[in-house]
Design a protein around this nucleic acid. Structure first.
Lengths: 284, 284
DNA sequence: TATAGTATGTAGTGATGCAACGATACCGCT
DNA sequence: AGCGGTATCGTTGCATCACTACATACTATA
């Protein structure tokens, strides 16, 4: 993976020799500078001798100092080059298209790294055992809900999606224990959604919430999955956070598919075959 | 940016000196090896002298050969660490969640780099001038269509989305010149969608198609925007290509917003304000 | 063809990473 | 505490590498 070198450094910090720890500390603090340093500079800065630096590199499995710098550079590059998207500038099509893609990627990576895998696992278990799964969302999250419904429907799960308050409430009233509701909100502050969630919980359903940490919705649900996206929602309707929600639902769906076991795979192929007559045949 | 070095090399290939072109060609062909090469090796492989290699690096704005290798390594790292997602292995939640995010990111980057900005610009212009914009899609692409509808609705554009064949046809029959249809399909081979598109075109509408290159749908539309995603659709419903479609629609929406000018921003804020009473207030 | 200017290679040099060796600190045992 | 052994670290020196200065070849133009 990308941050392998850093992880390795932190993990093995204990079993490093003392002077090597000095090097490790300096590298962890100033990685950007290190990649442009010579071995003498690094040795001086870290208050150790040059061979110590070499030994440090070897201890990390690198083939010398240069190789270490190369890997460090790659690791850094793989991380933080996806800046937040800024609309203020008047770019060309190519440029702003590029930056929209990049900022979406940045968001995904950030969400990926902050995911609570514990909660994720619990959510998957709940979904896998559910009798019925409903997706609630308003506005842009409504589209996410419908997408989720489509996905889970394909997994042979009784599922529906509602972007309408009345429908949500009517449906929520009929929920039972063992049913699962997934409430989706970019802000986590939509009053109507919180109301629907409350009804669903009172009916005995488990409610999973896709929303920002600390939001009113997060307080209300059984199992919050936090998605915090630093986003400029001032003007444009939330773009990247919606994508993050969709991908997280992908994760949930795959997780459910995995726990449901391989016999599901057969059924999925059947579903796919059923679509074939509706399509033009694949070339060759 | 990430691929800056490669772009720069290809762009300036003409105005390189002949021996430097040899170097450029070799680097473009074997970038992975180059980052572990010494200057002598590269010079030998490219059949030039060592100083030529140095001059080549300088011509690219690098501070010598080492600096060039460093940048090259960074560029490579920023690209290809997001492998395709493979479901066969029985990972932990953390692992497969990670790999789903990564493969989505990989898809986005690949789509980003293959985009035809020319066509994209034309699509944006068509959308910006349209009287009415309709989004057609079936299945998973239906959810994408609804999302798009929501987004363009916020841009003060008369818009609707149909995931139903009859609705599409009825709507298509009433289209006029100056209206734009966006047809969305992961496979590009959905018969019903192609039929709807044909009707829309006969009615005089411009049809933008989000679909794979070479697909039947691509042949039928006025303005194809190719999205080719190497994806294992064998079992799971298309995941990453759907995301790519959504992001591309983000790009279209932002492009339209930009061409429509800043007065739109005011209206957007008004829309956003209208939602506030429906939400819990923001903290502090 | 002569010549100016550019492009490319050769040779040499300083710098850099690195290995061998030696010095020192640390630890366990008597 | 004294001592032997080991782990750890630094110094010296060397081989290699990137890079500069200079010379030569090539190209275009008059």
């Amino acid at each position: 993976m990308s941050r392998a070198l850093f992880d390795e450094m932190r993990r093995r910090m204990e079993l490093f020799r003392r002077s090597e720890q000095k090097v490790a500390r300096f590298v962890l603090r100033n990685p950007e500078e290190v990649i442009h340093m010579r071995i003498v500079d690094l040795a001086t800065e870290a208050k150790v001798s040059e061979p110590t630096v070499v030994r440090f590199c070897r201890a990390l499995g690198c083939n010398g100092f240069q190789d270490f710098k190369l890997r460090l550079a790659q690791m850094l590059a793989s991380g933080s080059q996806f800046a937040q998207f800024s609309m203020s500038d008047s770019d060309s099509v190519a440029e702003f298209s590029h930056s929209i893609f990049d900022s979406t990627v940045g968001t995904l990576l950030s969400v990926r790294d902050r995911l609570d895998n514990q909660a994720l696992g619990e959510a998957i278990d709940a979904l896998a055992m559910a009798n019925r799964v409903e997706f609630y969302g308003f506005g842009a999250s409504g589209a996410v809900a419908f997408d989720a419904q489509h996905k889970f429907f394909r997994l042979q799960i009784s599922t529906s999606a509602y972007a309408d308050l009345h429908m949500q409430n009517m449906s929520a009233a009929t929920l039972k224990e063992g049913d699962v509701v997934v409430a989706i909100s970019q802000t986590g502050r939509t009053r109507a959604l919180v109301a629907s969630v409350r009804m669903a919980r009172e009916a005995g359903a488990t409610v999973i919430g896709l929303c920002p940490n600390g939001s009113p919705l997060a307080e209300e649900v059984t199992l919050p999955l936090y998605i915090d996206v630093p986003e400029d929602t001032e003007i444009y309707t939330p773009m990247t956070s919606r994508i993050a929600h969709l991908v997280l639902i992908d994760v949930l769906a795959v997780g459910v598919a995995k726990t449901r076991g391989p016999k599901l795979a057969e059924q999925l192929k059947a579903v796919k075959r059923s679509l074939n007559p509706l399509r033009f045949p694949e070339p060759e």
